[in-house]
């Protein structure tokens, strides 16, 4: 793909916008992809080099490899009789270095949690009642 990769920070702001757009629209999808980045344009040999003798050549590379993260929305086109409108496809991508992986995914999880607001919330009423009972029971047990 010809487009340039964003930095991790930019990626998160753009991802936030993407979720926001989706929320405003009321429907639509967000697609997130992650994969190993095996081809690096800056260094000459693609890492790791394929070894003909070893069929499992890619299972044990010498160095940790970066990960490519992509995000996009769905393109939609105007349709009469519905509230569908022309929406351009927005595609984002970023590269996560192996060292930043844990930090990135912590932020990623937060971004997804806030962005995916359409999913079903937990049933609060039911949950609370159960929890209280449990807590009382647990407290009694520990005391006794």
């Amino acid at each position: 793909m010809g487009r340039e990769h964003l930095t991790n920070d930019e990626f998160f702001t753009q991802l936030g916008n993407l979720f926001e757009l989706n929320r405003k629209k009321g429907h639509g999808s967000i697609i997130l992809t992650q994969k190993r980045l095996t081809y690096d344009s800056t260094s000459t040999p693609p890492t790791p080099t394929k070894v003909a003798d070893d069929p499992l050549w890619d299972t044990h590379p010498e160095n940790p490899l970066p990960i490519l993260i992509r995000a996009c929305n769905n393109k939609s086109s105007k349709r009469e009789g519905t509230d569908r409108d022309d929406v351009e496809k927005i595609a984002l991508s970023t590269i996560v270095k192996p060292d930043d992986l844990d930090g990135f995914f912590a932020r990623y999880a937060e971004a997804c949690k806030t962005g995916m607001s359409g999913l079903k919330k937990r049933d609060r009423k039911k949950g609370k009642k159960g929890k209280k009972d449990k807590k009382k029971g647990a407290a009694g047990e520990t005391k006794a």
């Binding site: 940790p64 192996p98 999913l119």
Partner: peptide, 25 residues
Amino acid sequence: ETNKAAEVGRLVGNLGRLGRSMAAL
């Protein structure tokens, strides 16, 4: 597939852990 908001955090956490093996860490 899920439709529960409560699972998202955990699932993305899983993605992160899978990401580690992707990165050969």
